[in-house]
């Protein structure tokens, strides 16, 4: 049978489609260029002279991001772990206490003391959980701007003598706020990672003879660590973009501040072009690196973002017929 690729309307339309798409994209870009820059043209001298300024400014952002991220990660890890603590149901408390009371012939004094302790312990766990919840909800429910200003207030009011110049106050306030912020979000990520591992696996591990802590160490943690890598890396990118907000404190070496200050002196479009280029470059590069890392370390079928389960089939799936368009 001869092979035949019909040159039909379908293919021709595809090509026209692609051409049109390219035209539109280029056209929009050209129009934007025309609109913003116009006949002046982008001033290459200015760009060449000043792009270093912005690159250094961005490194300040990167620095802040990384420090806040690292500290936030440790705090977030513990906070997240904390939030997975079981809250003990009342029945169990009563049951445990009864068991304790039955097996011993202690005096009433000791028994009530024991009851008090159990209740206190359960209550403590409950309180700790709620505090953790509250912290995360507050961080997620309020804008970063407000958090930054709040952090600044704390530093200025409560530790006035600690910083010599206003710049370091601003810098520290920014760091503090960013850390608290990322700790909150990372706590959620860690919590989800720890909880998503199917409890059936823990059961299976225990049936094999692992203790609870051992199961945690050998079964839950390795999977959890794989699970949380994608959201954590995206958190880094997000934090980097959010670090631009410390500009409001006047952190003078930060990129938004630099851009803003220079913009008012002129060359707005050149500055915008530089800043856009820097951010898009960083975001794209980071995203690609992350994707490469993810595909290297991922376990198929394991992810916080699970696909919806298909209806299970009783018989093996037949190979599909030729695909219908």
């Amino acid at each position: 049978m001869a092979k035949r690729v019909p040159w039909d309307r379908e293919t021709r339309w595809r090509r026209l489609d692609t051409l049109l798409a390219a035209v539109i994209v280029l056209g929009v870009l050209a129009y934007m260029y025309e609109l913003m820059v116009g006949s002046r043209g982008l001033d290459p001298v200015y760009i060449a002279a000043n792009y270093g300024l912005y690159v250094t400014a961005v490194t300040v952002n990167l620095y802040m991001t990384t420090v806040a991220y690292a500290v936030g990660m440790t705090a977030g890890f513990f906070l997240g772990w904390l939030r997975t603590i079981r809250s003990v149901p009342i029945k169990k408390v009563v049951h445990d206490f009864r068991a304790f009371a039955d097996t011993s012939s202690r005096s009433k004094f000791v028994l009530s003391g024991a009851l008090g302790l159990t209740v206190a312990w359960a209550g403590l766990k409950y309180l700790v959980r709620r505090l953790g919840d509250a912290y995360v909800e507050i961080i997620r429910g309020t804008p970063l701007f407000v958090q930054i200003l709040f952090a600044w207030s704390i530093l200025v009011v409560n530790f006035p003598g600690l910083f010599t110049n206003p710049t370091s106050v601003a810098f520290s306030a920014g760091l503090l706020a960013l850390t608290a912020n990322t700790a909150g979000y990372q706590a959620e990520i860690f919590r989800a990672g720890l909880q998503t591992v199917h409890s059936g696996q823990v059961e299976a591990a225990r049936a094999l003879g692992f203790s609870r802590l051992g199961a945690m160490r050998h079964i839950v943690l390795p999977q959890a660590l794989r699970l949380i890598v994608p959201p954590l890396t995206n958190e880094y990118i997000g934090l980097f973009k959010a670090s631009t907000l410390v500009f409001i404190l006047g952190v003078q070496t930060e990129i938004t501040f630099v851009a803003n200050r220079n913009a008012f002196a002129g060359h707005i479009f050149e500055i915008f072009a530089i800043v856009t280029a820097i951010f898009l470059l960083i975001t794209v590069v980071l995203a690609k690196v992350i994707q490469a890392l993810e595909s290297r370390f991922r376990i198929p079928g394991l992810g916080i973002q699970q696909t919806r389960a298909e209806r299970p089939r009783a018989r093996p799936l037949r190979l599909p017929e030729a695909p219908t368009p």
Binding site: A192, P231, N234, K241, I304
Partner: peptide, 8 residues
């Protein structure tokens, strides 16, 4: 789970 990128 609301684990996602920064800022939800």
């Amino acid at each position: 789970t609301k684990a996602a990128g920064h800022g939800d």
